[in-house]
Design a protein around this nucleic acid. Structure first.
Length: 569
DNA sequence: ATATCATGGACCC
DNA sequence: TGGGTCCCCTGATA
C-alpha cells in the first residue's frame, strides 16, 4: 500500500532516492540471502550500487580480489528493475491486461516526452487513441473555393459506413510464417490471396471455408506484394525479398520468374536485392517494381523480361517499400520508402530527381496510397505513429492536410502496418488500419483493427475478437462486399457486419479452420463432434496476457496441415 | 511459468 | 557514410 501511495506522489519523470523503509527492508532480506558478499557498509543508494556492479563487471581490482577468494560472483537484484530503462522505482509491463509504460520514455503512442500512453492526450480524447492534428490552413482561399464550388457537388450526407465487425470465418495458422500481404480476387468475390514471410502464396475460398491451397515454390523469401494480372484474373504477379518477380497461374500453381535481381545468388547482404513495392501498368503492359536500394525496375509482361534502365527513385541504398499508380492517371506513380519520403512521379518522364512532389515524413513511410476512386487524396502510414492525409487538389502537398496519431509502431517481427482505403466508400474517407497498442477489453489485452474517417480524423469503429490476441497488421477491405480480411500472425480472418454473418452462420456450421500439425494434435480428438467446441480456437489463440478469453459458441473444424494443404512443390 | 530467438531500423559517433 | 549498439505492448517454440 505504501509503495503505491508513494509512487502516485512521484513527479512524472524524476525518480527519488530510495529511502522508503519498506523497500529497504526488502533490500536487507536480499542481502542476507547474498551472504553479505557485495554490499556491506552504509547503504548506498541504488545508482551507486549499480555503479559498483558495473565496476565489478569491468574487472575492478578490489572486487576481483574478492572473487579470487573462491566466492562465486553474485549478481544482485536488490529491487525490481524497469525492463525498459533499467532503473528502479517503477516497472513497465503488463499488469493483468493493461500495459504500464515506462515513465522515463517518451509516450509510446504519440512519441512526445512528458507523459505516458495512459494519460496521452491522444488517448484520453473522445476518439480514444486516434485524434487528428489540427487542420492546417483552415481559412485559405482554397478552402473557400472548396466550400463554394465543390462542396455543393459532394453529397451533404455521407453514406453511413458499414463496418465488418464480427469474425465470420477464419483459418487459424494457415501459413507457416506471418502473413505479409492480402489481396481479394478481382472478380470472384470469395477468393482471398495471402502471402507470407516464407514466400508462400495462399489461395483461400472463404465462401467454402475449407477450400484452400498454399503454393510454396514461388518465392524463397518474404512475399511482399501481389497484384492480379489485368488481362487475366487467373494469374497473379508477386514481388519478393528474394529479388524476383513471378507470375503464377492460380489454378495450377505454375509459376514463371519474370525478373531476378540476384542471379548470382547470395553474395552478402550488401548486394542482395529485395523487392517490395510493386504495381502494374495495364496500358503499357508493365510491372513496376522497386528494390531495397532505392531503384525502380520495369518488367515487360508480354516479353516476361526486364526492360529499360532502373531508375533511382529514393535515396540510394534505402528500401522502397510501396508503389501505387493513380487510379485515374496510371502514369502517375506514388512511391514511398525508408528515406522518410513519399514521392509522386510521372512514369512517362522518369529519371532520378524528376519527381513531381516529395512528401516529407518524420520517419520511414510504410505505405502511400492514392484514394481509390478519384486518386486526388493520398494516405500515408509512417512509423512515427501518424497517418497523414495529403490532398492534391485542395492542398499544396507541401504539408499534409491532416495528421492522425495512431498506434502502429514499427516492430521488426511484425509486418509493417498500412492504412488501407475502403474501395467502396464513395466519399473516399474511410480507412482501415490495425492497431499495435493493446487495450484492456474485459480483462483481455486485445489489439483492435481501427476504422478511421480521415476527413475528420475520428475513429469510426474499432473491431476486435476476444480470440484474436495477436496483432493484425495486414488488413484489406473487399472491393465490392462489406467484408474485411485481416492477417494476424499466421492466421487469416474474414469479418462481416454482425447481422449478415448471423444469417450465414445458421446455414454453415464450419467457419473456423485450425491448421498446423501441432494445433491439430491437441484438438484432433474433438474434430468430429463440433457440437460443443466452444472451449478454444486452438493454441494459436491462447492468451498470454490477462485472463483467458471467454467467447461465444463457435464451431471449429480441425484440419491437420498435411491433409488440408495441398501443397504444390 | 519462463527463456530464447528471429533479425530491421534508429541512433550515435 | 559506416559500423556498433540497442530495442517497448511479438509470437512461436523449447
Amino acid at each position: 500500500m505504501s509503495k503505491r501511495a508513494r509512487r502516485s506522489s512521484f513527479p512524472e519523470v524524476v525518480i527519488e532516492r530510495e529511502t522508503d523503509t519498506e523497500e529497504s527492508s526488502d533490500e536487507e532480506e536480499d542481502e542476507v540471502e547474498l551472504e553479505n558478499d557485495v554490499v556491506e557498509a552504509d547503504e548506498p543508494d541504488v545508482e551507486e550500487e549499480i555503479e559498483e556492479r558495473k565496476r565489478e563487471d569491468d574487472g575492478d581490482s578490489s572486487i576481483a580480489d574478492k572473487k579470487g577468494k573462491g566466492k562465486a560472483p553474485i549478481t544482485i537484484s536488490l529491487k525490481k528493475v524497469c525492463k525498459v530503462c533499467k532503473r528502479t522505482g517503477h516497472q513497465a509491463g503488463f499488469q493483468g491486461a493493461t500495459y504500464i509504460d515506462c515513465p522515463m520514455k517518451p509516450c509510446f503512442l504519440c512519441k512526445m516526452p512528458g507523459h505516458t500512453t495512459v494519460n496521452c492526450p491522444h488517448r484520453v480524447a473522445m476518439e480514444f487513441g486516434v485524434i487528428p492534428a489540427s487542420r492546417k490552413r483552415t481559412h485559405s482561399s482554397l478552402d473557400y473555393v472548396f466550400e463554394r464550388q465543390v462542396r455543393c457537388g459532394v453529397p451533404s450526407i455521407k453514406p453511413a459506413f458499414v463496418i465488418p465487425d464480427e469474425v465470420n470465418c477464419a483459418v487459424i495458422r494457415y501459413h507457416s510464417r506471418r502473413v505479409t500481404c492480402l489481396e481479394f480476387h478481382p472478380t470472384n468475390n470469395n477468393i482471398l490471396l495471402s502471402g507470407d514471410k516464407k514466400g508462400q502464396l495462399g489461395v483461400w475460398d472463404f465462401g467454402k471455408v475449407h477450400e484452400k491451397t498454399v503454393y510454396g515454390n514461388i518465392h524463397q523469401a518474404l512475399l511482399n506484394n501481389m497484384k492480379f494480372g489485368p488481362a487475366n484474373d487467373g494469374t497473379v504477379y508477386t514481388a519478393s525479398s528474394d529479388g524476383t518477380v513471378s507470375c503464377t497461374d492460380l489454378e495450377t500453381g505454375f509459376s514463371t520468374s519474370l525478373m531476378n535481381l540476384n542471379p548470382n545468388g547470395w553474395q552478402g547482404r550488401n548486394s542482395w536485392k529485395m523487392l517490395y513495392g510493386m504495381e502494374l501498368n495495364a496500358e503499357k503492359g508493365l510491372v513496376l517494381v522497386a528494390d531495397s536500394f532505392g531503384f525502380l525496375h520495369f518488367v515487360d509482361t508480354r516479353a516476361s523480361s526486364k526492360i529499360g534502365d532502373s531508375v533511382l527513385i529514393h535515396k540510394k541504398g534505402t528500401k522502397v517499400v510501396g508503389l501505387h499508380c493513380n487510379p485515374l492517371q496510371p502514369d502517375l506513380l506514388l512511391s514511398c520508402g525508408n528515406d522518410h519520403f513519399a514521392r509522386i512521379w510521372d512514369i512517362r518522364r522518369l529519371e532520378a530527381e524528376s519527381c513531381l512532389h516529395a512528401l516529407p515524413h518524420k520517419r520511414v513511410v510504410n505505405s502511400a496510397y492514392f484514394s481509390p476512386l478519384s486518386g486526388s487524396k493520398i494516405v500515408t502510414t509512417s512509423i512515427d505513429n501518424r497517418i497523414r492525409v495529403w490532398d492534391s487538389i485542395f492542398g499544396n502537398l507541401d504539408t499534409p492536410s491532416r495528421e492522425i496519431v495512431h498506434s502502429h509502431d514499427f516492430n521488426r517481427h511484425l509486418t509493417p502496418f498500412r492504412a488501407e482505403w475502403d474501395p467502396k466508400d464513395s466519399s473516399e474517407s474511410l480507412v482501415v488500419v490495425g492497431r499495435y497498442i493493446s487495450e484492456n477489453y474485459n480483462g483481455a489485452a486485445l489489439h483492435p483493427i481501427d476504422f478511421i474517417d480521415i476527413s475528420t480524423g475520428q475513429l469510426v469503429a474499432e473491431v476486435m475478437d476476444p480470440n484474436i490476441t495477436t496483432i493484425s497488421p495486414v488488413n484489406k477491405l473487399h472491393p465490392r462486399d462489406d467484408v474485411l480480411a485481416s492477417g494476424s500472425s499466421r492466421s487469416l480472418f474474414i469479418w462481416r457486419p454482425k447481422e449478415k454473418s448471423e444469417v450465414v452462420q445458421e446455414k454453415d456450421t464450419s467457419k473456423i479452420l485450425v491448421c498446423n500439425g501441432k494445433g491439430s494434435k491437441k484438438f484432433g480428438d474433438d474434430s468430429d463432434n463440433d457440437e460443443d467446441d466452444d472451449d478454444d480456437f486452438g493454441d494459436g489463440f491462447s492468451s498470454k496476457k490477462g485472463k483467458k478469453p471467454k467467447h461465444k459458441k463457435t464451431n471449429i473444424v480441425i484440419m491437420p496441415s498435411n491433409s488440408s494443404k495441398k501443397k504444390k512443390t
